[in-house]
Simulated assay, not measured.
Amino acid sequence: MSMFSIFNVSGSAISSQSQRLNVVASNLANVDAVAGPDGQAYKARQVVFETTLMGAESAAGVRVSGITESNEPFKRVHNPSHPAADEAGYVTQSNVNPVEEMVNMISASRSYQNNVEVMNTAKSLLLKTLQMGQ
């Protein structure tokens, strides 16, 4: 693998983690969302990654292959005075688990930062290699 492949691999990881962070942000923004007019509350979403080959070299990167919705049951809170309450007085809320989402956010953020550091280190090594040739 050439030094330039490192930029492709880390770049693909940074792009994928950025998408993951956007999905986590969307989930966290809808933690307390109640059922909409269609009767369905917001479903938590998760990013699905897959390995992908990067160019002619045998370097493997990552890409987002899709975004899935959670099958966890919705939260039901008894609040008969809420305008969205059903006949029994329950309000259906999203199935987003804020603790899981915070863990996801920290994991994605660290992965993003690590890949930025990999790119900075590779850049530094390439510059030092060029300086040695002078």
Rank of each mutant, 00 (worst) to 15 (best):
S5M: 12
S5R: 11
I6E: 08
I6K: 10
F7S: 08
N8F: 11
N8E: 15
N8H: 14
V9I: 10
S10T: 08
S10H: 07
S10V: 00
S10A: 12
S10I: 00
G11E: 01
G11R: 04
S12I: 03
S12C: 01
A13V: 03
A13K: 00
A13D: 03
A13W: 00
I14A: 05
S15F: 08
S16D: 04
S18C: 07
S18I: 13
S18M: 11
Q19E: 14
Q19Y: 07
R20P: 01
L21E: 00
N22L: 10
N22W: 03
N22V: 10
V24K: 02
S26L: 11
L28D: 00
A29D: 03
A29M: 03
V31E: 02
D32E: 06
D32L: 10
A33D: 05
A33C: 04
A33I: 03
V34K: 11
A35H: 07
A35E: 07
A35T: 05
G36M: 05
G36H: 10
G36F: 01
P37C: 06
G39I: 06
G39H: 00
Q40L: 13
Q40Y: 13
Q40M: 09
A41G: 04
A41I: 02
Y42D: 00
Y42L: 00
K43E: 07
V47A: 02
V48Q: 14
F49I: 12
E50A: 15
E50T: 14
E50K: 15
T51P: 09
T52W: 09
L53H: 11
M54S: 15
G55H: 07
G55R: 06
E57F: 12
E57C: 09
E57G: 14
S58C: 12
S58H: 14
A59G: 13
A59W: 06
A59P: 04
A60L: 11
G61W: 08
G61P: 10
V62F: 10
V62K: 13
V64I: 10
T68Y: 08
S70W: 02
N71V: 12
N71R: 12
P73I: 12
P73W: 08
P73H: 05
F74K: 05
F74Q: 10
K75S: 08
R76K: 14
R76C: 02
V77C: 03
H78F: 15
N79V: 09
S81F: 11
S81C: 11
S81W: 12
S81R: 13
H82S: 05
P83D: 06
P83H: 14
P83S: 12
A84D: 11
A84K: 11
A85M: 04
A85I: 05
E87H: 05
E87C: 03
A88N: 12
A88R: 12
G89N: 01
V91A: 01
V91P: 00
V91N: 00
T92G: 00
T92N: 02
